[in-house]
Design a protein around this nucleic acid. Sequence first.
DNA 1: CATCAGGGCCCTG
DNA 2: CAGGGCCCTGAT
Length: 324
Amino acid sequence: MPGSMILDSAQSLTLRPAPPFDFAGTVFKPSHFPSSDAGYEAGIYRQTMRWGGEVLGLRLEDVGNATQPAVRLTVFAHTPLTADALAAVAAEVAHRFGLDRDLAPFHTALAGDELLGPVLARRGGMRVSAGVSLYEFPVTAVVLQNATVRRTVRMMEALFAAYGARAAYDGVELSAFWPPEALAAAPEEDLRALKVGYRAKTLRRQAAAFSSGEIDEAVLRTLTKDELKRRLLGLYGVGPASVSYLLFEVFHHYDALDYLPPWEQKIYSRLLFGEALVPPERILAEAGRCWGEWRMLAAHHLFEDLFWQHQAQPIPWLEELIRL
DNA sequence: CATCAGGGCCCTG
DNA sequence: CAGGGCCCTGAT
């Protein structure tokens, strides 16, 4: 990998999400596998972002309070962005981190929920967020398939090392994603050398779909959930599990809980029923009954809250499920 | 040493 | 719609 690029131009602006807002719960999802393109420490979130052919460095910091939430966004770049480009980046960041959404109706509807109420009191205002792009998200879904977390992390880092970049800014050095063209052009055997196995084919085909312009995220954002789901399932390597993640984390459909993969099944079995393993249909039915159109958002709150608790004080049964 | 499942999905019959 | 196969690892 070439040396890291220095991003020494910094431009800042302030984003103002509607209350309630939880900064930490929004930028850092403890249930996600760690990856070197992002980091959260001492109340500051940093991640790289490939944007318009450039690698940018983002820094997000909480500068608000309960009644007037505010996020200071600083965009680091090799050369300063134009005012329009900076505004476009800010709008994209606001979208990716759900800062353009209002969770007040969700809170009003479910503050009295037996399971969710206490979680909302602790972590109320946590947004649904995915820092990565629509192309990058399926990459992370693909390295999760049929793999334990340890292997997922290795595959992801091997891909960063071979095809990504390194960016130094704001006192840190982080990895950055590659443009889809880079993987679309890579020989399958080169990818296999990174020990991604059968995923090599998937990664190439997805990269090709994005580099050819066949996918237009702006158009996808305007589709209904069902139509969007149909289109996303057309992406090679995206099946029922990945499409749920996409609908929820990238497109912010708060009701995208119609399928439960095995790992989630185990965790929600404990959370909702206090049992080791409950059939997925029963979990889905219970979520629909309790939370209706908010079912995935509510489930996400319970899920992340559990991982926050686990960080503070390890939970044995969860420890076993997070097999590194 | 062999076997198997893992935070799926594709393809075939 | 069911089930085999897929890369590689770590657990058994």
